[in-house]
Design a protein around this nucleic acid. Structure first.
Lengths: 150, 150
DNA sequence: ATAGTCAAGGTCAAGGTTGGTCAAAGTCAG
DNA sequence: CTGACTTTGACCAACCTTGACCTTGACTAT
């Protein structure tokens, strides 16, 4: 049984409950899980790195603390930018350009690119005879999908 | 009989009992079959490859483990089956069921699942006022996307 | 102000617990 | 006898846990 995983699980839960940013006490955590305080540092450095989507700030001394926050990744920012740029309609050419750019910037993977390209293709949307409707569909489908990647 | 075959047989049995995915301990297996631990690796690498229909993940250190999972029917076969099952129209509930099943069967990844669910949602397709049109769109979008995964 | 105290958190290395690798030696069918 | 497959064991790598010792900062007595 790995204590580190239990601790990590607990921190993740608290951060989620606290809306993305939690104030913790190393000694309290150590006591709660009956481990040495330094184990908390181990958990933080191995499981709460930026790569894992978290940042950790702390302060020593009286009233010290450890703050664990979920970080908003670059990818998310880029995605949000695109989402905000898309209007209520999106023609096939513009959609292709967006996808190509995002692929280029590695905001989306090759597989995601292909999936989205297929979903936004004129063929996939052929059931909507009206071009304006198709363009509206493209915009809303792309937006919803991109938001899912957040 | 060869020890390797006994070990393989045992692992196959456990994986089957555990519903396709078993958590094993190399040292326990080695002890059970009175062999050196590395023989377990030999068995795994020679008899539990993707070609054999299995995947193996593992982790070292305290609380380490070896997970052996049976690989699902080939992705492409399942995908084609789904594509052929989908008619010309697909309502939201049916689409959700298809996606859920494919996710469960690991035919699609979690990310693909979320993307597709977003793309096929009634909200994404709201621009098509007519339900029949929406259902047609859902069918063609799903089909085209699934074929992209082939 | 200054220095001392004490309550935080930080570092690091040692030791423990798994699983991984590789090559030598063994076995066995053809 | 030979080549493919199997078995072993020495050595390696990854991950986890613990504890001794260090640093920082708020507070307090002088």
């Amino acid at each position: 049984m790995r204590i580190s995983d239990l601790i990590a699980e607990y921190i993740i839960k608290v951060v989620a409950e606290e809306n993305g940013s939690a104030l913790l006490s190393r000694s309290e955590l150590a006591e709660r899980f009956r481990c040495v305080p330094s184990q908390i540092n181990y958990v933080l450095t191995t499981r709460f790195t930026p790569e894992h989507g978290y940042t950790v700030e702390s302060r020593r001394g009286g009233g010290g603390y450890i703050r664990v926050s979920r970080v908003q990744m670059t990818r998310d920012r880029l995605i949000m930018h695109v989402v905000n740029t898309i209007g209520s309609q999106l023609d096939a050419a513009s959609a292709a350009a967006f996808l190509s750019n995002m692929r280029q910037a590695e905001v989306i993977s090759d597989e995601e690119y292909r999936l989205l390209a297929a979903a936004l293709s004129d063929q996939a949307l052929a059931a909507a005879a009206d071009k304006n409707i198709r363009d509206m569909l493209r915009a809303s489908i792309l937006k919803r999908c991109l938001l899912q990647l957040t």
